[in-house]
Design a protein around this nucleic acid. Sequence first.
DNA 1: TTTCATTGTGTTATTATAACACAATGATAA
DNA 2: TTATCATTGTGTTATAATAACACAATGAAA
Lengths: 259, 259
Amino acid sequence: MNYMNFKQEISNHFFKGHEIYLRNISVDCVIFGFDNNELKVLLLYAKYANLWSLPGGFVLQDEHMDESAKRILKERTGLDDIYMQQFHVFSHPARSTREINEQFLKNVGVRVKESWMFERFITVGYSALVNFPEVKPVPDVLSSSCEWFNIHDIPEMLLDHRDILKKALENLQTQLNYHPVGYNLLPEKFTMPELQKLYETILDRQLDRRNFQRKILSTGILKRLNETKKGVAHKAPWLYKFDLRKYQKALKGGMGFEL
Amino acid sequence: MNYMNFKQEISNHFFKGHEIYLRNISVDCVIFGFDNNELKVLLLYAKYANLWSLPGGFVLQDEHMDESAKRILKERTGLDDIYMQQFHVFSHPARSTREINEQFLKNVGVRVKESWMFERFITVGYSALVNFPEVKPVPDVLSSSCEWFNIHDIPEMLLDHRDILKKALENLQTQLNYHPVGYNLLPEKFTMPELQKLYETILDRQLDRRNFQRKILSTGILKRLNETKKGVAHKAPWLYKFDLRKYQKALKGGMGFEL
DNA sequence: TTTCATTGTGTTATTATAACACAATGATAA
DNA sequence: TTATCATTGTGTTATAATAACACAATGAAA
């Protein structure tokens, strides 16, 4: 896409976007991944605002909002069929500003007097847990890059996106006690210490190795394979995989589980 | 208000409502009350749809959505300063229909060709727990009555309002384990059996009297008064009230509590 | 004065959690 | 070849939480 097409596209978005999207509503996604024993989130660098932002978008006229979130996830990561959930609605009247869009248009060099984009937006936060190595981050047209950030090392962010991120993390930490986590965050086969590290990373505290194993096994969501991790220094740990049937069941029904 | 004013108001709402409200977004409130040992919800009878509906409304241009929910609660119940929380966003593309509004306008006798009201609405569900005897139900302009219904005896409802109600109840039941409930649902002074009945009603199952008392007291949110309930057959139970400081703390921080 | 539905309280068995120690493994270094 | 050693696998025990259960006290109504 060349520069003129880009300007054309922006112009079209501001003038005609309200014909294909719902007004005053947006979706923002907090996409969690686990890599190198760190919990990470996928952020975009907004070219014209010069700030990092959450992958977001709008709701098509005939689209369920859950689908909007999945569409955004797919566009940024290439991933399909990922479980996503809404965690909060952010509706502070001053959370989005007309100024930020006007500045943006000025930088791009497009003149717009009135637009649905100048209006206030209420945003719904969705979160997803994805398998880090499968993701090929793709920036959107308004962004120059799409990168993973350690959850403890988040740069300055657009609007209230830092609050949204914070809420998503709190939500994930709470969910951890009642719902299984890991299927999307870990490779198919993984070791008990790896799973524990994931939990410790999300909760941001140490867990007892033996108690953790006992509890997680007691839920029945894991199956131990007849193989051990190869090419590892020291004693080779067993490999496990999720019992998908029981995992799904626990996702819906909850588990009653305290760490 | 006479009939002409009403038609005028409706007309104005359809033609000009989008100037004061956000588009495509609504708020629906599930207002729970406890009376006669029954959990009840406040519903409106929508005059022209001839169906019961949840009290709902729209978000003013410069209003936080939490405030919209509180405004709606205040209008229907007269109550102020009630803790409300969003519990889910409902966004099925077919959840609201143009037809229902056109039927409504036909019944009222107002002709409208295009209106923001004909568009699709995404709604955010808010729930509130209120003190039943304090409520003086007030129907809105589109409703002929505003009444309490037993949660187990809900009439046919508008759109997806039954789903919204169901979700609100499930949410309340889950919350019960982690957050204190009762301050808004019970009178200032209450007995232990009354509090237990409230919990049993919400959870829809029996609880052990002695274990319930032990657990609820162990949270520290209750203060036993030096008086007993008067005018009661059989042994007079002690009166309790909430320790508001600890109650509020438990509201925010959670309690870790299993029934 | 008796009746009786209801409240207040205590005990015990069972289960869950937290804290903790030592043997087994197997790559790496000596 | 053998010793080292970080790491994994597993078991025990003390403590706390939960579930199941029984009997005495009250006080209005009969």
